[in-house]
Every structure is written in C-alpha cells, then in structure tokens.
C-alpha cells in the first residue's frame, strides 16, 4: 500500500514539473497582418449555431449570417477581390484560446468589447450594437431582468459569454446554467431546465423568429457593442481592419448588410444596432 502511494505521488510530482515547463514555453508572436497579406486569406473564427449572425445551412454545409458577410466584406476590402475568407466554427468558450494559439487570425462572432477582454485581445471599433435581453416562453410571468432575481430561478446562458457575468451582476440570486452553445442553451430552455435564456437581443430575436412560442421580453438591460477581435499585439491587423470597416460603412455595404439580416425582424431597432 505504501509502495502504491509513493508511486502515485512520484508520478504526480513529475507530471506537474513537466507541465509547468511546457506551459512556460510560449511561442514567439507572428505578424498576422503580414502573413494574411501574403496568403491573401484571413481565417475567421465565427459562430455556427447563431441565427442571423453565423448559422450552418444544412442544405450545403456553409455558414451564413451577418458576421460572415461582414468578415467577407472586410477581407475583400483589405486584400482585394480575389482574397479568401476562411471560416472556422467557434463557440464563446473556444474563440479566445484559438486566437491566442494562432489557429485563427481574427474573430467575427458576436463578441462584445469588454474591459476584461481588452486586456488580452485587441478589438476594432464596434460594428454592431447589441444589448443583453431575456427570452421566455410566451405567457411566462417573467417580464424583465428584475423578475429573474429570485432564489431558485434557473437561467440558461452560454459558457464564456458576457451574459454569464451580467446575470451575476443584475440578478445575483438567480442560478446560471452554462451550456456549450446557443442550440444547447435553447434546447435546455425548451426542456424546462430553466425559466429563461439570456444573451444578446440580436441572437434572441433570431431564435424567437424561428420559434413563435417564445418571445424576447424586458428590452436590453446592457450595452453590448460587438467588435472584431485579434490577438493582443496584432495592432497592424486591427488598424487595417478598422480602415476596412470605415470603408464598407462609407460605400453603403454595411447598411445593406444590416438591412439584409435584420430588416424583417419584428421588434428590432435598426438604428440601435448600427454603429
């Protein structure tokens, strides 16, 4: 028995030593802008489960949405008409590590600009103005964020989103159940695992459009300006993305895209969304 314990302990210590060593070995930073320019290609981290922003089309397997169109427009503005935008499916949980480890060049995935995230990533100017809201079943007694602030209330949110922190702040008594993506969170709401689902209004309107038994209530209780993100220190990439963003706003592409995706959504304020 003592031998057993000694062996286990020895293994654990050795392993920790190995891991600590490997996790210290950071790779040197590459210049994403120069690499992308050479390849004429930007690898974007996008959503695959979010209606209106980034959703896989089952007919052809391609991802479609506002974020996708913005990313394509920016890529073409930056590196010319024949430049390629490549898309990698991400979730709120995976996009930061993937940016950090160079698996993707930039993120266009309903990502709110926050002070915490700014410490580790570089953001462009906002390209979409969302606000956090609440989705409930029609006829629910929940009318707004304050109704959620009760003990025993369970609210669905997605791991790694600002919604998780905001609920802790605005409705501290509610318990948050964190799921991996929006499809899972909404499935859980529909299965009655919680009384409401919370995230940005644009995403919730997308779900409500397809599921008429559900509605967005209480309006937006936070400001969630979406930005395109790159890894910290990729300022050259960010500056060029900002310039491209200005250009697509100036030539009308941007407004056209906002109308294309959000023009027909009842209850959605286009003025609020445009940045």
């Amino acid at each position: 028995m003592a031998k057993l314990l000694k062996k286990t302990l020895g293994l654990l210590v050795l392993m920790m030593a190995v891991f600590t060593l490997t996790s210290c070995g950071q790779s040197s930073q590459t210049n994403v802008y120069q690499n992308s320019k050479e390849a004429k290609k930007i690898v974007w981290g996008v959503k695959s489960d979010t209606k209106l922003f980034g959703l896989v089309n089952i007919k052809n397997g391609k991802t479609e949405g506002f974020d996708i169109d913005i990313a394509k427009a920016i890529t073409k503005k930056m590196f010319g008409k024949d430049a390629k935008a490549e898309f990698v499916a991400t979730t709120a949980k995976t996009k930061v590590p993937l940016l950090k480890n160079n698996s993707i060049d930039a993120v266009a995935a309903t990502m709110t600009i926050t002070p915490e995230r700014k410490k580790i990533l570089d953001f462009t100017k906002p390209y979409f103005g969302a606000g956090q809201s609440i989705l409930v079943k029609k006829g629910s007694s929940i009318k707004g964020i304050n109704d959620l602030n009760k003990k025993g209330t369970q609210v669905m949110a997605v791991k790694g989103t600002t919604a998780v922190d905001n609920i802790h702040k605005y409705a501290p008594k509610a318990k948050v159940l964190e799921l991996d993506d929006y499809a899972q969170a909404f499935s859980a709401l529909k299965s009655g695992q919680g009384i409401a689902m919370t995230t940005d209004n644009g995403i919730l309107f997308g779900i409500a459009k397809e599921n008429p038994n559900y509605q967005v209530v209480g309006g937006a209780f936070t400001n969630e300006p979406y930005g395109l993100a790159v890894d910290k220190g990729q300022t050259e990439m960010r500056d060029h993305m900002n310039k491209a963003l200005d250009e697509i706003k100036a030539d009308g592409t941007y407004t056209k895209l906002v109308k294309k995706w959000f023009g027909s959504i009842p209850g959605f304020d286009l003025k609020e969304a445009e940045e």
């Binding site: 709120a92 930061v96 590590p97 950090k100 580790i120 791991k159 790694g160 998780v164 922190d165």
Partner: peptide, 10 residues
C-alpha cells in the same frame, strides 16, 4: 470549463 472561459487561462 466555466473558469477557463472566464479567466482565459485555458
């Protein structure tokens, strides 16, 4: 999981 996605120290 939850911690990693909040602290980014994956």
């Amino acid at each position: 999981d939850s911690l990693a996605s909040q602290t980014f120290d994956t």
